[in-house]
């Protein structure tokens, strides 16, 4: 592999970066890029699981009003209350929900941190071609991960302000706990609805490459079944996309209304 050369060369021998000093065991995994990808894949699966469950839970919007203890109530509101009462009376109210929330937040922070550090490593290692490049395998999803990722993160912030915390872009009608009404008021604003649709397209694109990539990063690999990895990515991303985009459309079309 060494080349005949007439000019002195030594810069190729110099590492771009030093080997980090080894931390104790589980942390040492995270010191390497392959290990970071592993963490990114596991946290990614956790987050995709959440997004999928969140979408399925939202389908309750379509059930509208239901009978509850002799009175009419929005099924979505009952579902939201059930989440707050998970495992009650074994656990006090809200405790399980907060455990889940903290777990998700931890996964999200690790996902973002590994993405950020690995991106910096790659950008530092890359030297751009001066002529035109012709890509064969890299698709729109894989090449836009560093764009769709921040879009999803921003969307998350707006979404929490809008429908969980009730400040910033939330509507004036926001009432804590009235989930159904809050959704209808918020998505009744066409600009916000379009924002939600665009953001959810970004979510689906990110998830499509993410799922396939995560199998690869975790070394879940069997040449016989590898075509299933792409298929799983398409199926999950597709289901999440259709479900999530349907909500703003249904509100605008008055299918979901007060």
């Amino acid at each position: 592999m060494s080349l005949p050369t007439t000019t002195p060369r030594n810069s190729g021998d110099l590492p771009m970066r030093d080997k980090p000093r080894q931390l104790p065991f589980p942390l040492s995994i995270y010191q390497s890029a392959v290990g970071k990808k592993w963490v990114m894949a596991i946290t990614g699966f956790i987050l995709v699981g959440f997004v999928l469950a969140h979408m399925i839970g939202n389908l309750k919007l379509y059930l509208g009003l239901v009978e509850h203890n002799g009175a009419l109530a929005y099924d979505t509101d009952l579902y939201a209350e059930a989440l707050r009462e998970l495992l009650v009376p074994i656990m006090p109210r809200l405790v399980v929900l907060w455990i889940l929330r903290i777990g998700l937040l931890g996964a999200l922070l690790l996902h973002i941190h590994s993405a950020y550090t690995l991106s910096r490593m790659s950008l530092a290692s890359d030297f751009k071609y001066q002529g035109k490049r012709d890509f064969l395998a890299a698709n729109f999803a894989s090449r836009s991960m560093r764009v769709t990722g921040p879009i999803v993160a921003l969307y998350l912030v707006f979404h929490l302000a809008d429908l969980t915390l009730g400040f910033g872009i939330a509507t004036g009608e926001f009432v804590r706990g009235d989930v159904y009404a809050n959704v209808v008021y918020s998505l009744g604003r066409p600009v916000v609805a379009i924002g939600y649709i665009i953001a959810n397209i970004a979510v689906a694109i990110h998830i499509y490459h993410g799922i396939w990539s995560a199998f690869q990063s975790l070394g879940i690999n069997n040449p016989k079944y590898n075509y299933l990895r792409r298929l799983a990515a398409k199926a999950v991303a597709g289901i999440i996309l259709v479900g999530n985009v349907s909500f703003p459309i249904a509100v605008l079309a008055n299918i979901i209304s007060l």
Binding site: R17, D18, V34, L118, F135, L136, S142, S217
Partner: peptide, 21 residues
């Protein structure tokens, strides 16, 4: 070998360009 690789090169994002090339 992986640790040495990471001293010189970037982090894989599973584009798949390598196998095509």
């Amino acid at each position: 070998m992986v640790d040495t690789m990471e001293q010189f090169f970037g982090a894989c994002t599973n584009h798949g360009e390598c196998a095509e090339a």
